[in-house]
Amino acid sequence: MPLHPEIATIVANLPAPPEGPIDPAFLRADEESHVAAPADRLPLHAVDDAVAAAPSGDVPVRIYTPAEADSYGVIVYFHGGAFFLGSLDTHDHVARALAKETGCRVISVGYRLAPEHRFPAGLTDCYGVVRWVSEHGRDLNRDGTTLAVAGDSSGGTFAAAVAAMAHDDGFTAITHQVLYYPSLDLDFDEDRYASLRENATGYGLETAGLKPFNAFYLDSGADPADPLVSPIKREDLSGLPAALVITAEYDPLRDEGELYGRRLTEAGVEARISRYAGANHGFVANFGWIPEYHAAFTETRAFLAPVTAGATGAGQR
C-alpha cells in the first residue's frame, strides 16, 4: 500500500534540514520543545523518576506503573535518536503507551549520549540498568516472569546488543527482546540492503542522512564491524531471547531488521517479524496515535503474554 495519507501529509511538510554541520544541541532543544505538557500525557497509576545504581555509575530512569497490582512483568526500554538524540522526556509517550497496553512496569533508561560520551558509555548504561532491575526485582514488585528489553531505532540497536551481552555473560534473566524498526547494521553502504535504495528519499528518514546522523556515535569509538555496534554481524545468534522485530514498509532500515529476524529463527530463536504496511521509520514514536500503528503496542502485549510468548512466525500489517 502507499504511505499512509496522514503520514504522507506530515512528511511532505517537513522543513528542510538546516545547512552546515549537524548541531546536536540545536536538535536536542528542538526535540524537547515538542514534548507534551505533563497534564496532556497519557495518565497511568504512577510515573516516578529514580536513579539506577549501575556498575557504570548512577543512571537516571523513569518507572511507569500502569495500574495498581501485586506484581508486574518488567520492560526495560531504550529510546531512539541516532545515539545522540532523545531523552526520558522525548520518548515519555512511548513508554506510557507501552506500559498501558502491556500491563508491564516499564523502566525507561536515560543513558549517556554521543558525542559527549564515548562508546560504549550508553550501551553500558543500558546493560547496567537491566542488571539493576534483575537485582532489585523485589523492590520493583517484579513478578519473576517477564523481563524484556525493548527499543526503537537506535534504542533497538541497544536492546539487541544488551540481549547478546547478557547471553555472553551467562545472565539468563532476559526473557524477550522487542525491536521497533531497529538499526542493526551501521555499515550504511546502500548496496547492502534493497530497502536502503527503495526507501532512500521521501519517507522522512533518508538513506543519505544515515551516515551524518550516526557519525557522532561512530566517531566516538563505535566500530560498525563490532557486533555490539551492528548486532546483525554477530555470527552465532543461538540462545538469545525470543524476539519481536517490528519493521516499517517505507523505512531504509526495513531489510536489515527483517534479515535479523530470519537469522534468529534459523539459529533456533523464537522470533516474529511484523512489517507494518504504509508506515515509515519512527512510526511507533511519531504516529502511534493512528489506530493501525498503535497496534504495535498491542502486538507487543500479545508477544509478551505467557500464553503466546513461544509463538513463532511472520506477520504483515
Rank of each mutant, 00 (worst) to 15 (best):
residue 147 L to A: 03
residue 130 V to P: 05
residue 90 T to Q: 05
residue 86 G to I: 09
residue 135 E to S: 14
residue 141 N to W: 09
residue 152 D to R: 06
residue 144 G to E: 11
residue 135 E to P: 01
residue 88 L to R: 05
residue 135 E to D: 15
residue 153 S to P: 07
residue 64 Y to A: 09
residue 112 R to Q: 13
residue 59 V to Y: 06
residue 129 V to Y: 05
residue 139 D to E: 15
residue 108 S to Y: 02
residue 141 N to Y: 13
residue 89 D to T: 09
residue 85 L to E: 00
residue 81 G to I: 00
residue 123 L to I: 14
residue 73 G to R: 10
residue 69 A to V: 04
residue 122 G to P: 05
residue 128 G to M: 04
residue 108 S to M: 14
residue 109 V to P: 02
residue 127 Y to R: 08
residue 99 A to H: 05
residue 128 G to P: 04
residue 109 V to C: 00
residue 106 V to I: 12
residue 70 D to K: 12
residue 136 H to N: 15
residue 54 A to H: 03
residue 98 L to I: 02
residue 50 A to G: 11
residue 75 I to N: 11
residue 72 Y to W: 08
residue 79 H to D: 06
residue 114 A to H: 03
residue 154 S to Q: 04
residue 54 A to N: 03
residue 133 V to W: 06
residue 95 A to T: 04
residue 61 V to N: 01
residue 107 I to V: 15
residue 146 T to P: 05
residue 98 L to Y: 02
residue 139 D to P: 03
residue 133 V to G: 04
residue 78 F to P: 04
residue 64 Y to D: 05
residue 91 H to T: 08
residue 134 S to T: 14
residue 61 V to M: 04
residue 68 E to R: 13
residue 132 W to V: 00
residue 146 T to H: 07
residue 149 V to W: 08
residue 75 I to C: 10
residue 53 A to R: 12
residue 129 V to M: 06
residue 125 D to A: 09
residue 140 L to T: 01
residue 64 Y to M: 10
residue 80 G to A: 03
residue 117 H to P: 10
residue 126 C to W: 08
residue 112 R to E: 06
residue 147 L to H: 06
residue 93 H to K: 07
residue 63 I to T: 02
residue 91 H to Q: 11
residue 119 F to A: 12
residue 86 G to N: 04
residue 84 F to K: 10
residue 136 H to C: 06
residue 53 A to K: 10
residue 132 W to D: 00
residue 127 Y to D: 14
residue 91 H to K: 09
residue 126 C to L: 10
residue 126 C to I: 07
residue 81 G to S: 01
residue 85 L to S: 00
residue 141 N to M: 13
residue 139 D to L: 13
residue 136 H to R: 15
residue 65 T to L: 10
residue 75 I to F: 09
residue 124 T to Q: 11
residue 123 L to K: 09
residue 131 R to L: 13
residue 121 A to H: 12
residue 122 G to H: 07
residue 80 G to S: 02
residue 54 A to R: 03
residue 65 T to S: 07
residue 119 F to V: 14
residue 143 D to I: 09
residue 73 G to F: 08
residue 106 V to F: 09
residue 150 A to Y: 06
residue 113 L to N: 03
residue 153 S to Y: 11
residue 53 A to P: 03
residue 82 A to G: 12
residue 98 L to W: 02
residue 103 G to T: 01
residue 112 R to V: 14
residue 102 T to I: 12
residue 80 G to L: 05
residue 97 A to C: 12
residue 124 T to S: 14
residue 66 P to M: 00
residue 129 V to I: 08
residue 79 H to N: 08
residue 140 L to R: 01
residue 137 G to A: 15
residue 96 R to E: 05
residue 126 C to N: 08
residue 70 D to F: 10
residue 63 I to H: 00
residue 59 V to S: 00
residue 87 S to V: 07
residue 134 S to V: 14
residue 102 T to Q: 08
residue 83 F to I: 10
residue 57 G to N: 02
residue 64 Y to Q: 08
residue 82 A to N: 09
residue 82 A to T: 10
residue 61 V to L: 04
residue 53 A to T: 12
residue 75 I to K: 07
residue 103 G to I: 00
residue 121 A to T: 13
residue 96 R to D: 04
residue 134 S to H: 14
residue 73 G to V: 13
residue 85 L to N: 00
residue 148 A to Y: 11
